[in-house]
């Protein structure tokens, strides 16, 4: 069962990659990368259960925690064209 789910995740990864390659806007690419990250977390978790070595879950946990940071950086890049803008002076 985990095997079938892992194959489904792989197929979804392949399809998501199409969107990342095609664009057309930058936002579409970021969206695709974001989903790709989710799918990778699931693949790693499923693979851990497939091979019965659940310590791989640490990697999935790491991705769940810090995949977000890349997206935040991209957003900041979109809005300010620079990662260093303070932008929080108004509160």
């Amino acid at each position: 069962m985990t095997g079938a789910a892992a194959l489904a995740v792989l197929a979804a990864m392949g399809i998501t990659l199409i969107r990342a390659l095609r664009g057309p806007t930058l936002y579409d690419r970021v969206l695709a990368v974001n989903s790709f990250g989710t799918l990778t977390v699931l693949l790693i978790a499923l693979h851990g259960f497939l091979t019965e070595r659940p310590e791989f879950l640490d990697i999935a946990l790491l991705y769940a925690l810090i995949n977000f940071i890349g997206t935040v950086a991209v957003l900041k890049f979109f809005e300010y064209g620079d990662l260093g803008a303070t932008g929080s002076t108004e509160d």
């Binding site: 390659l21 690419r29 790693i44 693979h47 791989f56 991209v74």
Partner: peptide, 26 residues
């Protein structure tokens, strides 16, 4: 676009390392 695709490449290589049992590298 290249930077975003590098993100995907990195995710894929981490998954490959996991499949190859190299947990620390992954």
């Amino acid at each position: 676009a290249a930077a975003m695709l590098f993100g995907i490449f990195s995710l894929l290589s981490a998954a490959v390392f996991v499949v190859l049992d190299a947990v620390d590298v992954a």
